[in-house]
């Protein structure tokens, strides 16, 4: 009987609810605050690595590092930060003549990075490449800057600064660079109308007439894949593209598809910046595509004509549509600009 009473009492104690104001068992005042990514409803779910969840402190640290030229102190890119080449007003690309920088827009969906796919994996992987190999960040130097150790502690739980943590913080910030509020997006949501020229351009874009949609599908306007779009018929040097990484002859002349979101801001165009204007880009697809054994099959239209042969009116309409992909809220978003 005594044992029965003891057992019942123990059971009651075990079942007793904790008082409402009890702190969670794992409460830690230094835990970073979860950051909820705001994605437009039509966007895919973004996969985020379990070992690098988005947090407010991590994003803030990544943003500071992104804009801090001290990141490159002592390295081959001394005096540069990420933001030196990835400028917000140019959709995190760069309009310097002859330089073609891939924009940091909706990059969290990608699993291959840079024009030739030099880095495969996630944003963390490409940022680790940038930190270790491109900038060759001096972590000991960063640790001497008084603002950083507390920021690393807030983001990752301790003041330790290493390449991986820098890369992870940068990945968190870049993952937040979401553009999905262009005039086209507002049209798609039924909020505004497109002009006649924009509508005609949209029909060219999303039909076999222009056949742009296969490599630049909705809603991200990139398929994140590699294609040879007929820029050259003979491939040497950097123009060999993905082949330089894979050594597979089938990959000669293939480059990663850039997003067309904010494309009006991201000149010059193509991997080598050979086209200065959208007009030149469309002229290429219309009249100057070059045949080669790895030309994307999509570009081989019937009767083997690899050029679209657009009329001047169609070209103008297509450009009018492309201009609707400019997202001014993105390029003016203070959360993406230099930290104060």
């Amino acid at each position: 009987m005594r044992w029965l009473i003891i057992t019942l009492l123990l059971g009651l104690i075990a079942c007793k609810k904790p008082p409402k104001d009890s702190p969670p068992a794992s409460n830690n005042t230094s835990s970073p605050t979860p950051y909820t990514l705001q994605l437009p409803p039509e966007f895919p779910v973004m996969k985020i690595r379990e070992d690098n969840p988005l947090t407010k402190e991590g994003v803030a640290l990544g943003r500071k590092l992104y804009y801090d030229v001290r990141l490159s102190q002592g390295g081959p890119m001394q005096g540069h930060a990420c933001a030196t080449c990835h400028v917000q007003s140019f959709s995190f690309a760069n309009n310097a003549a002859g330089v073609s920088v891939m924009p940091h827009v909706n990059l969290g969906y990608s699993n291959a990075f840079l024009w030739k796919g030099n880095v495969q994996g996630t944003l963390e992987d490409v940022m680790l490449f940038e930190v270790k190999d491109f900038f060759q960040v001096d972590t000991a130097y960063l640790a001497t800057l008084p603002e950083y150790p507390p920021m690393f502690k807030a983001a990752f739980g301790s003041e330790t600064i290493n390449h991986k943590r820098i890369a992870y913080a940068l990945a968190q910030f870049v993952r937040t660079l979401i553009s999905g509020n262009s005039k086209f997006d507002r049209y798609y949501r039924g909020e505004v109308m497109l002009s006649d020229a924009e509508m005609r351009g949209m029909m060219i874009f999303f039909s076999e007439r222009g056949d742009c949609f296969h490599c630049h599908p909705l809603p991200l306007f990139t398929d994140y894949e590699f294609h040879n779009i007929g820029l050259d018929s003979v491939f040497t040097g950097e123009n060999q593209g993905l082949y330089l990484i894979t050594k597979n002859p089938a990959d000669l002349g293939k480059f990663r598809t850039p997003t067309l979101r904010n494309v009006a801001l991201t000149a010059p165009y193509m991997h080598d910046g050979r086209f200065a204007t959208l007009q030149e880009v469309i002229d290429h697809y219309s009249d100057h595509v070059k045949a080669s054994p790895t030309l994307d099959p999509i570009m081989s239209h019937n009767n083997r004509d690899i050029n679209l042969r657009l009329t001047p009116q169609e070209k103008a309409d297509l450009i009018a549509f492309l201009l609707t992909l400019t997202d001014s809220t993105f390029i003016n978003n203070p959360d993406f600009g230099p930290p104060q």
Binding site: F43, P44, V45, M202, P217, L218, P219, L220, D223, Y224
Partner: peptide
């Protein structure tokens, strides 16, 4: 359009509304 889960693979398989 939009009936399948929002994944990059499904986005890349979309058939344009215009068609």
């Amino acid at each position: 359009t939009g009936a399948l889960p929002n994944t990059v693979e499904n986005m890349n398989m979309q058939w344009p509304d215009a068609m």
